[in-house]
């Protein structure tokens, strides 16, 4: 008689094997080095965060939660200080930048991966990547002297004609003077968008290029046009890349310093309009105030730096989760 499964199990007690891995020396060395390098990155992050927290602690203790709401900056004289206006400006500049950069980046990435002839794909990619290599100071100078005089006419037109929308409001009655629109959130946002485009484009390009050939061919074989393939295959596949690329761009835009510092005229009172003169950003605030601050001022700047650090950390963490997650089913094999 053939024993059934149950019978054999009850007779022979099972003993699970202890899985032991013996590593040889080179493997152990390499493991050690890689682990150490990995932890160094983490340690650096912790050190920077800790340093900002430590140096900013006295200011944070003094201001408390009002640090996030106060719309003035006078720590050196012992007055009130806070990022109640600076933080919203920072975010506004970044959002203006994304609003411009994301559509351009999607279009550029689609062109490179879907439409461009194969032989110009690589040069075009390098060219876009090269844009990222231009120092932000150069963008700032070019933005200040070339772009701004042209952009303020856009600002004026918006202020004159679309002033009833709070975002484009300009103080005083129309027609407004052109100078009223210089050094605004809008101008800073446009310049920052130029720096964000190469970053967003390269993330999106990489994701679009991986859109599965099988599905693209399926769409074509059904009588689809190139646009149909993009709409039904490439864009749904690349959704994670689009969102992730935009978030990485946001992280970059939030921290942009020198170009914003050159362009804006710093302001500590909140205004909703992006066209009106006056804006600010945490990074620009630190850059502008650092050399003229006393111990109290430095501590307050460190606290502002901590806020920026945490914000960019959060944005980038979300971005990498979205980019890394990809699409469910992307790796399905039958």
């Amino acid at each position: 008689m053939i024993p059934t499964q149950e019978q054999t199990e009850s007779v022979v007690p099972e003993e699970r094997i202890e899985i032991a891995v013996r590593r040889d020396v080179p493997d152990r060395i390499y493991r050690g080095v890689a682990t150490a390098a990995g932890f160094t990155t983490l340690a650096l992050m912790a050190l920077i965060g800790g340093f900002l927290l430590f140096r900013g602690a006295s200011a944070l203790r003094k201001a408390g939660f009002s640090f996030l709401t106060t719309e003035m900056w006078a720590p050196d004289q012992g007055g009130d200080f806070g990022i109640g206006a600076v933080l919203p400006y920072t975010i506004q500049i970044s959002l203006v930048a994304l609003f411009i950069a994301v559509p351009i980046s999607i279009a550029t990435a689609l062109f490179i991966t879907q439409y461009a002839p194969t032989r110009i794909r690589r040069p075009l990619t390098s060219l876009v990547d090269l844009l990222a290599a231009i120092p932000s100071l150069i963008y700032g100078l070019w933005g200040l002297f070339y772009l701004q005089p042209r952009l303020i006419t856009v600002g004026k037109w918006m202020g004159d004609n679309l002033g009833w929308i709070p975002l484009f409001k300009a103080s005083g009655p129309a027609p407004h003077s052109i100078g009223q629109f210089a050094a605004s959130t809008f101008v800073a946002g446009v310049v920052v968008s130029l720096m964000v485009i190469p970053l967003c484009t390269s993330v999106m390009r990489e994701v679009f290029a991986q859109a599965p050939m099988g599905e693209q061919e399926a769409a074509l074989a059904l009588g689809g046009t190139k646009w149909g393939v993009i709409r039904d295959v490439v864009l749904p596949f690349g959704r994670g890349g689009i969102i992730g690329g935009a978030m990485l761009g946001l992280g970059r835009a939030l921290g942009e310093t020198i170009a914003v510092t050159l362009i804006i005229s710093p302001m500590f009172v909140r205004q909703f309009s992006i066209m009106e003169q006056g804006s600010n950003s945490i990074a620009a605030l630190i850059a502008l105030k650092f050399s003229e601050s006393n111990a109290n001022g430095i501590s307050a700047l460190m606290a502002a730096g901590l806020a920026l650090f945490l914000l960019t950390l959060l944005v980038n963490a979300i971005a990498s989760v979205i980019v890394g997650k990809g699409r469910s089913g992307a790796q399905t094999e039958i």
């Binding site: 074989a221 059904l222 689809g224 039904d232 749904p236 699409r327």
Partner: peptide
């Protein structure tokens, strides 16, 4: 002249019904 491929390649972002009707949309 339709085509069925070696590896099944339904559109993953679409439901069963949307997959069947996708050709109408695409063409």
């Amino acid at each position: 002249i339709g085509m069925v491929f070696q590896k099944p390649n339904p559109f993953p972002a679409m439901t069963i019904a949307e997959n069947v009707l996708s050709g109408l949309r695409l063409s």
